[in-house]
Amino acid sequence: MSALIIFGVLLLIAAMVVVYVIMIYNALVRLKNETEKAWSNIDVLLKQRFDELPKLIKVCEGYMQHERETLEAVIKARNMVQQASGEKESLQAQNFLSDTLKSLFAVTERYPDLKADSIFANLSNRISELEEQIADRREMYNEYINLYNIRIAQFPDVLIARKFNFAPKTLWEIDPEHRADVEVSFNRS
């Protein structure tokens, strides 16, 4: 009878191990998908910002005749985002666009009439709001990536991750060149 009990308990433990493995696998799959969803959640906001930009540039053009370079930089960055292929290139383009927008808003300080324009105020508020949300969601994305990378490196998850080829993912990082302060040209032609 003892042998039967021992055998039964061992069988139960084996079944529990199988269930445990399945659950870990499912949890990793969920986490991997969550990281992709977090990326898509940023995309939603980036798309909204992308759609708002032409309106902002149009309003600014009316007032900022002498800031062609700044405006063109924003347009160029927007086009880079549109043409970006691949995750890394897209990240770089988005970062560049964020920087040019910061430059644009810095330059608008010199144009009181523009700042007083209600359409510009609404658009700039809207874009600032989107920028804040994008920043939050980037943090969120990085948090997901971090959790995922830790999970697939930890025991016992690492065994399942290696078996089923769960590869580590890259964090959203700013390029070294973008860590430096952006120089804004105030040259008037």
Binding site: M23, A27, R30, L31, E34, A38, N41, V44, E132, Q133, D136, R137, M140, E143, Y144, L147, R151
Partner: peptide, 15 residues
């Protein structure tokens, strides 16, 4: 595990 695997969102940017 669900709680540990879910990062904390901010109120203004909840998706």
């Amino acid at each position: 595990r669900r709680i540990e695997n879910t990062p904390t969102s901010k109120a203004r940017s909840v998706a």
